[in-house]
Every structure is written in structure tokens, then in C-alpha cells.
């Protein structure tokens, strides 16, 4: 599970926004599933100290390669940009449970900002001749969407809509608006009911966005899986650093470990506003 992987590419897709693509060749690709993550050692020194969890965005079993996207936000990701091709990176992975991959029906994908990255691996795993896919993606602006892979979606002929905070492309506003508009699109109540019943949803993004889209999906009776992010230390369930709160069917509140029990959870079981 600790792998030394060869860096095939580590390239800025948009230097200004600090969005990078990292391709690694090694053992992880053999068993990785969509929605899992790897725990990367970004420095060979003691500082920065902890590993960095990064979701897997692409899995190529033939080539033995995984693709990761990351945005430079702090010391760890800055350090990661310095890694060169042909170097090796030490990682633990694949870790976590991953998304359910449906083999039929309709899948609504909901992405907030860089939350699109783990969904890429899910899209890749779908047989789109059997699963109807609709992607709604909200982000800050056009530049971000283009840097983070909008073109790839066009090439894949995916049915998608985007929203941006500044209105530079798509709907001006939030992804929750897109979701509400989309659901309102089913005018005839009986058609809406039968159509919506076939949907399930998978979402990744900031916590507030996940909370909002989960509320909407649950209102409409759409089962939703959410991929959570939390500050992590061990990545394997030992340190209890990255917990979320979940409500069991009995009503009891329990902690779950984002790294080990997740990062993908049934949106309905997550307690979003727990304060204690």
C-alpha cells in the first residue's frame, strides 16, 4: 500500500490559478476505484510534515497510471509543484471507499470548484451508453472552468451546465440555482416523478455546497453520495483527525472517519450543522 510511483507529468494547466495535473505510474492504478484518494509525501524532509490527500481523477489500468489534479493552496501543494518528471513520489493508496458506479439509470453529477476532480474518475468509469449523465458544475469564473477541464467535458460529449460567480460563462450564480432550474424543467408532475425516480446523484465540493445540494436532492427523493474533505493526518483511520458526524438509522449520532469510512458518504446520513 506504500508505493513509489514514477512522475510521468507534473504540469501547470493554469499557472496563474495554480492548477496542476500530476500523472503517476505505479501500483495504485491496478486497484484504484473512482472517488478514492492517495496520500502523498510531498517533501523528503520533515517540513512540511504531513502527507497530502489528493483525490484520484483518472485511472488508466493498461498504462498503470493515475491522474491527479491539484490547486496550489498552501505549503504542501507548493512543494508538490517542484516535483519533476521521472522523479519518484512516495504515496499511500488507493485509500477510502469511493463512489458507487451505476451500470444503468441516470446519474446527476454535482461539482463545486475543484470538486470536479474526483468526479472525472467517476465519469470515466461510466458506460454512457447505459447510464444517462447530467453534470452541473459551479465555479468562480470561466478561467477556472477552462483550466480545470471544461474542454475535456466538451470532448466527451457530456451533457453539462455550468454556473460562475461572476457570470463569465454559464449561469451567473450558484450551482444550487442550476440544480433547482434543472429540477423545475420537469413540468408535468407525473413525468417529473417517474423521471426523477430514476436519478441518483454524486457530489463533491465545499461543505456548504454539499449541504445545500443534499437538502435539494433529499427533498426530491434523489439518493445522493457526497465526497467530503477534511484536514487529515494518517489517512488510514488511526488518528481520528478527519471525522464527520453521521446519524445512524436509530437516530444516534456517531463519528465517521472521512479517510477510512469515506470520503464518500450517503448525503442523507451526514449531520452538517453538528456543533458539539
Amino acid at each position: 500500500m506504500i508505493n513509489q510511483e514514477k512522475v510521468i507529468e507534473n504540469r501547470a494547466l493554469d499557472p496563474e490559478l495554480g492548477i496542476y495535473r500530476l500523472i503517476l505510474r505505479g501500483q495504485t492504478a491496478k486497484t484504484a476505484r473512482p472517488g478514492q484518494f492517495v496520500h502523498l509525501k510531498v517533501s523528503s524532509t520533515l517540513d512540511p510534515f504531513l502527507r497530502r490527500p489528493i483525490s484520484i481523477a483518472g485511472i488508466n489500468r493498461q498504462q498503470g497510471e493515475i491522474t491527479l489534479f491539484y490547486r496550489v493552496v498552501g505549503r504542501g501543494t507548493s512543494e508538490l509543484t517542484r516535483v519533476k518528471e521521472n522523479q519518484t513520489l512516495n504515496l499511500i493508496g488507493p485509500l477510502g471507499n469511493g463512489f458507487t458506479v451505476p451500470h444503468e439509470g441516470k446519474l446527476l453529477l454535482l461539482a463545486g470548484g475543484i470538486g470536479i476532480f474526483p468526479l472525472f474518475s467517476l465519469i470515466e468509469a461510466l458506460d454512457t451508453s447505459k447510464v444517462k449523465v447530467k453534470l452541473l458544475w459551479g465555479a468562480e469564473n470561466r478561467q477556472f472552468l477552462e483550466a480545470a477541464g471544461l474542454k475535456t467535458l466538451l470532448e466527451k460529449n457530456l451533457d453539462y451546465e455550468v454556473s460562475t460567480l461572476d457570470g463569465s460563462i454559464g449561469h451567473k450564480g450558484l450551482i444550487t440555482d442550476l440544480l433547482e432550474y434543472y429540477l423545475q424543467g420537469f413540468n408535468n408532475p407525473s413525468e417529473k416523478k417517474s423521471s426523477i425516480l430514476a436519478w441518483r446523484a454524486a457530489a463533491c465540493g465545499p461543505k456548504a455546497m454539499l449541504q445545500a445540494v443534499t437538502a435539494i436532492c433529499r427533498r426530491e427523493g434523489i439518493p445522493i453520495e457526497v465526497s467530503l474533505e477534511e484536514r487529515m493526518a494518517c489517512g488510514v483511520g488511526a488518528c481520528l483527525g478527519c471525522v464527520c458526524t453521521a446519524r445512524e438509522p436509530s437516530g444516534t449520532l456517531v463519528r465517521k472517519r472521512v479517510c477510512k469510512d469515506g470520503p464518500v458518504f450517503d448525503g442523507g446520513e451526514v449531520v452538517w450543522d453538528e456543533e458539539s
Partner: peptide
């Protein structure tokens, strides 16, 4: 149930929990 998150913060050559 323990404390709410964030429970972890990185520090120079170490961490807080």
C-alpha cells in the same frame, strides 16, 4: 464523540491535534 473538526493543524516538523 470527541471534539468538533478541524482537529488537526500542521506545524513546522510536527502537528497539533
Amino acid at each position: 464523540l470527541g471534539n468538533p473538526v478541524p482537529r488537526i493543524a500542521e506545524t513546522p516538523s510536527g502537528m497539533l491535534n
